[in-house]
Design a protein around this nucleic acid. Structure first.
Length: 509
RNA sequence: GUCCCCGUCGUCUAGCCAGGUCCAGGACACCGGCCUUUCACGCCGGCAACGUGGGUUCAAAUCCCGCCGGGGACGCCA
């Protein structure tokens, strides 16, 4: 064995050792290491177009980037990529929604940038490229250019000299051209293996009102250009985003090469699809809201962060759920059940328990010796109690009543044991105060409510227009704003409550 | 059509880059059981995966090739 071999062997052994160590540590790690990441020097970014409120999908971008920024003691920048006032027109309120939801999710940006407010800067950079003849004004129609691109042929405008190109550029800025008449293209390679990369558009003319900058500009950069410049200017070290932007990197690298910049480290993740929501695009949701299918952007049937917050989900549960998806490039189709499980872990210990009788049926307990006040624990642990009065006239859930057959022995939870006497007359028959041997555990222990303890309650479901109506125990009024568990029903957040009634939102089972 | 990416339990994911400690770990779901005056929580146990065919190697989930399957890009959208 010569020196060289010996050295390699030692190196290899060291690497293996290192790997073993890593394995031991990685048990608690939520996300994989970021390549080339140095503690204290990492700058991440989250760059949404605010054309609607954040959804679970966009929240993934916030949370993962934020998590990495935290892991490496780095920075997180939120940048609004809002440079298309037409096709993906930003929504004025949505800027605020993003910031609000970010804060709620525990995402703390060190800086917030609005691309639409920095358009002159992009002009400066493209001017340089025009001078370098790395960009050119192109008068081809979309169709004409598509032909050139598909064939891999340069278009006639590609060789416009810098001087002439700059003159056209100035005329563009002066508003001398109409929409669609001319665009600025970045020179790449018309023979590039991937047609998607060939001479892409950096600027186009859009004469539309922008919610933030109005009609100040008519020449707007495309995302590819704006983002390329910003990532460098802002000193972004790592980009993590959806893989729909994977080609974007290949296009942008040309600019980085022309300017001699270093492209950030990138990572792209696959599409997330949530079983329960399917594929809902922002524009589709907007239409449905207009049609009245959803009440608004915070409708509990929607996967927006504001809707989930309204439903009573905890930010921490959402973070964990999103982080659990990792940063792999494969598409994921995940179930809300995972989110439910995370949230339940947090909420179960603290949620007060109450009775909610949905689709109520009034029944009479024949032979009940007396009315009794019962004390029931409010929570699984601790010594808080609530009181209910058991009387001969009570309400029970329609689902339960329908299931029962005459002769069944049923336990009214914490109150008394009864036998179903007459389905037709809605009559029960008192058996005993004690728990009877005949009561099967599980579905034969049901909740109930006397009229005096009840208050009208509607629960807004997690599917469009789904509602449950019935009575909830009055004690629940004191938990307005909180997540409670309606026993044998589900966790719900009490959104509004007073003596006249309760409105609750379905959280999860 | 051209180009790119991805395939580990039902689902999500760890492991893959630096092959052995992986007859593959965790979570959710599911199925038993315990606890319980909620079908909740908790506890115990169980089921269950490396798409496929070759190759390299003493050794492959890990490296190479083919095939099959899935997704995406080819906007003057983001």
């Amino acid at each position: 064995m010569d020196e060289e071999e010996r050295r390699k062997l030692i190196e290899l052994t060291a690497k293996k050792e290192e790997k073993r160590e890593e394995k031991k540590e990685s048990k608690e790690k939520t996300l994989p290491d970021l390549p080339k990441a140095e503690k204290g020097k990492v700058v991440m970014r989250f760059a949404p177009n605010p054309n609607g409120p954040p959804t679970l999908g966009s929240a993934r971008g916030m949370v993962v980037n934020d998590e990495y920024a935290k892991i490496y003691d780095g920075k997180l920048i939120i940048r609004f990529d809002d440079t298309d006032p037409r096709t993906k027109r930003p929504m004025l309120e949505a800027y605020e929604w993003y910031l609000e939801d970010a804060e709620w999710l525990g995402v703390k940006p060190h800086e917030v940038v609005y691309a639409s407010k920095r358009i002159p800067m992009y002009y400066d950079y493209v001017k340089k490229l025009l001078e370098m003849e790395k960009a050119y004004p192109c008068f081809c129609s979309r169709e004409e250019f598509k032909k050139f691109r598909d064939k891999g042929i340069e278009c006639p405008h590609r060789n416009t000299p810098a001087e002439k190109a700059l003159e056209i550029w100035d005329r563009m800025l002066a508003g001398e051209f109409d929409e669609g008449e001319v665009v600025i293209r970045i020179k790449t390679d018309m023979k590039h293996r991937d047609p998607a990369i060939r001479d892409w558009v950096a600027f186009r003319i859009i004469k539309a009102d922008h919610p933030l900058v109005g009609d100040r500009y008519t020449v707007y950069p495309t995302l590819d250009f704006e983002s390329a410049i910003e990532d460098h200017v802002l000193g972004i070290t790592h980009i993590i985003r959806g893989k729909d932007l994977i080609d974007s990197e290949r296009r942008q690298r040309y600019i980085y090469e022309y300017f001699g910049w270093e492209y950030p480290v990138t990572k792209h993740w696959g599409r997330v699809k949530i079983h329960e929501f399917g594929k809902l695009s922002t524009s589709e949701i907007r239409k449905e809201i207009e049609k009245g299918v959803y009440e608004g952007w915070d409708d509990p049937a929607l996967p927006t962060i504001r809707a989930l917050r309204r439903r009573g989900f905890r930010a921490e549960a959402i973070r964990k759920f999103l982080l659990s998806l990792g940063v792999g490039e494969n598409d994921v189709a995940v179930s809300m059940k995972n989110l439910y499980a995370e949230n339940r872990k947090i909420v179960d210990r603290t949620a007060s328990r109450y009775f909610f009788v949905w689709d109520p049926v009034a029944v009479e307990i024949k032979g009940l010796p007396e009315s009794r006040v019962v004390r029931i624990p409010k929570k699984p642990e601790g010594n808080e109690y609530r009181e209910l009065t058991g009387e001969k006239d009570v309400l029970i859930a329609g689902d339960d009543w329908d299931r029962f057959e005459e002769g069944d022995v049923v336990r009214l939870k914490d109150f008394c044991t009864v036998r179903v006497k007459s389905k037709e007359k809605n009559q029960l028959e008192f058996v005993s105060w004690e728990m009877s041997e005949n009561v099967r555990k599980g579905r034969n222990i049901v909740h109930w409510l006397s009229w005096k303890d009840g208050v009208v309650c509607v629960v807004i479901g997690d599917k469009p227009l789904l509602r449950w109506g019935g009575f909830a125990e009055k004690n629940a009024v004191q938990d307005a704003g909180k997540v409670v568990q309606f026993e044998r029903f589900a966790f719900c957040r009490i959104e509004f409550a007073d003596e006249s009634g309760i409105r609750a939102i379905y959280t999860h089972p």
